[in-house]
Computed example of a mutant assay.
Amino acid sequence: MHAVDSHQPFLDELRRCAEDTDVASRIQTHCMDMSDIPAVFSSIDLIWSEGAAYNIGFADALARWAPALRPGGFAVVSELAWLSDAAPAAARDFFRAGYPDMKQTSENNRLAELAGYRVLGTHTQPRAAWIDDYYEVLKPRATTLASHQDAAVSALAQETLKEIEVFETAGDSYGYVFHLLQRS
Results as ranks from 00 to 15, higher is better:
45 D>L: 08
47 I>T: 11
48 W>V: 13
51 G>Y: 00
56 I>L: 07
57 G>I: 01
58 F>K: 08
59 A>R: 04
62 L>T: 12
64 R>F: 02
66 A>V: 02
69 L>P: 15
70 R>I: 09
71 P>K: 14
72 G>C: 01
74 F>S: 15
74 F>A: 13
77 V>H: 12
80 L>Y: 06
80 L>S: 12
81 A>V: 05
82 W>F: 10
84 S>I: 00
85 D>Q: 14
86 A>I: 01
86 A>K: 03
86 A>N: 10
87 A>K: 01
88 P>E: 14
91 A>E: 14
91 A>W: 03
93 D>F: 01
95 F>I: 07
95 F>L: 08
96 R>W: 01
97 A>N: 04
98 G>A: 06
101 D>I: 01
108 N>S: 11
111 L>T: 12
112 A>N: 05
115 A>G: 14
118 R>I: 05
119 V>T: 09
119 V>F: 04
120 L>V: 03
121 G>K: 00
124 T>F: 02
125 Q>E: 12
125 Q>H: 07
127 R>M: 06
128 A>R: 13
130 W>E: 14
131 I>G: 12
133 D>A: 09
138 L>P: 04
139 K>M: 04
141 R>I: 04
143 T>Y: 04
144 T>L: 06
145 L>I: 04
147 S>E: 04
149 Q>K: 15
149 Q>N: 15
151 A>M: 11
154 S>F: 04
155 A>Q: 09
156 L>V: 08
162 K>T: 14
162 K>H: 11
163 E>A: 09
164 I>R: 10
166 V>C: 12
166 V>H: 13
167 F>P: 14
